[in-house]
C-alpha cells in the first residue's frame, strides 16, 4: 500500500489504530483483554475499600488510591434500554448497520453502558431485548522487539449481540 509517501511504505501506524494497544508491554490493564479472550467480561475491584469501577484500572482505585486491585467478573448478559441504528454514512472502520445501545447489565457500575450491537440486522432490535457479550478478533499490533524482529500481538474486542430467542 503506497500513498506516495515513501517513508510510510509498508509501515503500520499503530498509534493511529482504531483499537486499543492491549499488549502487556504497553498497557497495565492487559488482564482485561486476556480475560476477554476467554469470554469473560471483567473489571477491577478495590480489595481495600470494595469499590468496583469501570473501566478497569491498571494501577489505582480512584476512590482510595489503593493499589490493591483484583479482577472480578461482570455479567455477560444485559437488557437494551434505548438504541439507535445508523444505516447510511457509517464512519470508516465500521459496517452498516452501526447500532448503538444503552444497555443495563444489572449491576453497578454498568447500569447504563453504551455499546455497539453486532450480529443484528437493521430494524430487528427492540427496547427490552436481551443481549449478550460478543468477543471478536481485531487485527494484531506489530511490536518491535529489537533483534527478535517484529512480533504480532493478538487482540480482541467486545460488543453485545441479541440473544437468540
Amino acid at each position: 500500500m503506497s500513498f506516495g509517501i515513501p517513508i510510510l511504505d509498508n509501515l503500520y501506524p499503530a498509534t493511529m489504530d482504531l483499537w486499543p494497544i492491549q499488549a502487556k508491554e504497553f498497557n497495565k490493564v492487559f488482564p482485561f483483554y486476556e480475560n476477554l479472550k476467554q469470554g469473560r467480561f471483567t473489571t477491577t475491584k478495590c480489595k481495600d475499600c470494595g469499590h468496583v469501577m469501570f473501566p478497569p484500572r491498571g494501577v489505582i482505585c480512584p476512590e482510595c488510591y489503593s493499589e490493591n486491585l483484583e479482577y472480578i467478573d461482570l455479567p455477560t448478559k444485559g437488557k437494551v434500554l434505548i438504541f439507535t441504528e445508523e444505516v447510511k454514512g457509517v464512519p470508516l472502520g465500521y459496517e452498516s448497520p452501526l447500532i448503538h445501545a444503552v444497555i443495563d447489565l444489572g449491576v453497578e457500575p454498568c447500569r447504563r453502558m453504551i455499546t455497539k450491537i453486532v450480529n443484528c440486522p437493521a430494524g430487528v432490535l427492540k427496547r427490552g431485548d436481551e443481549v449478550q457479550l460478543s468477543v471478536f478478533e481485531v487485527p494484531p499490533t506489530p511490536i518491535e522487539k529489537g533483534r527478535a524482529g517484529t512480533i504480532m500481538a493478538e487482540r480482541v474486542f467486545f460488543a453485545f449481540e441479541p440473544v437468540k430467542k
Binding site: L18, E86, P91, L92, H100, T115, F157
Partner: peptide, 28 residues
C-alpha cells in the same frame, strides 16, 4: 478527519464502539 475523531472520546473504551463521531451519542 472522520477517523481522527476517534481521539475525541476515551480512545480505548468508547472509540472502538464507534463513538468517536458524536451523532449516535446525541441521538441516544
Amino acid at each position: 478527519v472522520f477517523y481522527s475523531e476517534l481521539a475525541s472520546v476515551d480512545h480505548d473504551w468508547e472509540a472502538p464502539h464507534g463513538m468517536g463521531l458524536p451523532p449516535p451519542f446525541f441521538a441516544l
